[in-house]
Design a protein around this nucleic acid. Structure first.
Lengths: 166, 166
DNA sequence: TTTCCTTCGGCACACCGATACGCATGGCTG
DNA sequence: CAGCCATGCGTATCGGTGTGCCGAAGGAAA
């Protein structure tokens, strides 16, 4: 699905303010409300807009520690990977999980309240992940920046940002 | 600010669907629309709800590569750190940056379209960060899970989740 | 216990925005 | 040039939002 200049402006705006009123968004991108709404719906249906969420202030809800955990598995077999990934998906404490190239197999990010809370997460979540051979934990002292918005370059008047991903 | 059971349900819901109509949210948590709206406003004003955003499908906008970069600085002086962090904050390509305990000083996450795009980002963004002594890059093959919602434990009927963070 | 006070939820209403039409315009193709 | 598709505009309607007011529940002090 090609994204023209207007689509990109819509996405840019919605990435910063997911709750903006359609009328305001329309004015911002220079369309009528109905035309703008139609584009937003199209972007939603295409799955380009995945979902809308509220982001909480991590420190204000008491999750001050970010912890990164590098994990190596005992084997690289399909079953081992699948079992591990399913367990990760079930855990509500694992904020992010990436399959990595390089020394470690997976990289996880955990948000914990404090060391005691991390111990709980370690015991109840991390230690129960199947197939783990090695775990290396790094603590973050402070989150410098956290960004959910991708920049959508103004590449020409109407560059097909990228073809179908389906 | 103490969060009671209803507040936590509101937050849980808004973390999953930031665009839910207030009337529906009210029904979900078992309040009238007005009472519910008042609570949401309070949570917003307290900064517990930081902001609302639209999340895009990273692969559908052509950002298929996640790259983690560990960075060590030449010095740990305040000026070096500040200069580095300010440069990071200005970059639109750096999705996350954490000050770390352990070998590396910082951990960054970058979202790139492909290797060529990463080269551009490396050249125009990473290579220009001030004070860097060493950089170690790891590629993610695939994002297994990505979660923006914190679980808000149902700790008792009305546990002060945590005191003022101001 | 009574009274005062604070907090919080429900109710009702006025208003604003979302949404679904129908119509107009313009580019492309046969 | 005629028809078609895509896309935008304007409007009318409907539903949600947000405010003002009242009443209930709980706590403190006399």
């Amino acid at each position: 699905m090609p994204l023209d200049r207007i689509d990109r402006r819509i996405l840019e705006r919605l990435q910063r303010d997911g709750r903006i009123a359609n009328a305001d968004l329309a004015e911002f991108v220079g369309l009528s409300a109905s035309a703008c709404l139609r584009r937003v719906r199209t972007l939603e249906e295409a799955g380009i807009i995945d979902r809308y969420v509220a982001l909480l202030d991590q420190s204000k809800i008491g999750r001050r520690m970010d912890i990164f955990v590098e994990i190596s598995l005992k084997s690289q077999s399909n079953e081992t990977l699948s079992a591990f990934e399913e367990a990760v998906a079930r855990s509500t404490e694992i904020m992010e999980c990436h399959l990595m190239a390089g020394d470690a197999d997976y990289l996880l990010r955990i948000a914990a309240a404090d060391p005691v809370d991390f111990e709980r997460i370690h015991r109840d979540h991390l230690a129960r992940l199947p197939g783990v051979s090695r775990m290396r934990t790094s603590f973050a002292i402070r989150a410098v920046s956290r960004n959910t918005a991708f920049s959508l370059p103004e590449t020409g008047p109407d560059l097909p940002q990228q073809a179908k991903a389906k």
